[in-house]
């Protein structure tokens, strides 16, 4: 067996195993902060799997966006909230049997569905954008070429979606507070020495 294949396989099982295990820990951990940390670990291993697939751009973006920004805010919120998660879990336990039942039914259905999976006869012909060979083009360039041409419409609308999310967050939370003294940089900078300091000659025993 080829050395590369062996290392590849070891890496795959390591990443996949840790990803699944930390995924389980996300919901099993008692402490919500630990949950988020395990979530981060899961993201990390997913990024590792991307690297194994040769999708290094996606892997890095996953780390930068999800781990570096989104999960930080998660952690921020979870650390700030003083939620009693054990009480919440007690409530959830009540619904566990029915939830588990529905989940089980869905699982069985899915197994049946995927067991009998067929593909459309002209499946291969329908694929719109086959992956270019990795050796010829870096996957950053390949993604960019697709995103800004073929999927420009979806890309632009996604931009609008993010804008709406931003407007929404501001509209729903921003409150103009009364009595806040703001720093006015322009007035500070434009203040001349003459406005601030007055040189007074004080004569002895006469005062100002």
């Amino acid at each position: 067996m080829d050395v590369g294949t062996v290392i590849h396989a070891i890496c795959f099982y390591a990443f996949a195993g840790v990803a699944v295990a930390s995924g389980v820990m996300v919901i099993a951990a008692r402490n919500p902060v630990h949950s988020v940390l395990f979530l981060i670990l899961a993201f990390f291993n997913a990024a590792g799997l991307f690297v194994l697939l040769g999708a290094e751009f996606l892997a890095m973006i996953l780390v930068i966006v999800y781990v570096g920004a989104v999960a930080v805010l998660f952690l921020f919120v979870v650390m700030m909230l003083d939620i009693n998660f054990t009480a919440l879990r007690q409530g959830a336990l009540q619904y566990l049997p029915i939830g588990a039942l529905i989940g089980l039914i869905l699982l069985v259905e899915l197994v049946l569905v995927f067991g009998a999976w067929t593909m459309a006869p002209d499946f291969a012909a329908s694929a719109v954008a086959p992956t270019p060979p990795i050796a010829q083009v870096t996957n950053t360039a390949a993604l960019g070429a697709l995103l800004y041409t073929r999927y420009i419409y979806a890309f632009q609308v996604s931009g609008l979606i993010l804008l709406v999310a931003m407007i929404g967050a501001i509209v729903l939370t921003l409150r103009g507070r009364e009595g806040v003294r703001r720093q006015k940089i322009s007035t500070q900078v434009s203040r001349a020495r003459a406005d601030a300091v007055e040189v007074v000659k004080v004569r002895p025993r006469q005062g100002v």
């Binding site: 902060v33 751009f57 973006i61 870096t138």
Partner: peptide, 25 residues
Amino acid sequence: NINVGILYLFAISSLGVYGIIMAGW
């Protein structure tokens, strides 16, 4: 000498915050 070196650096530097948050918490 990876293709996405600069992104790698950016990713690592953005992870640095975790050490601090974890320590503080």
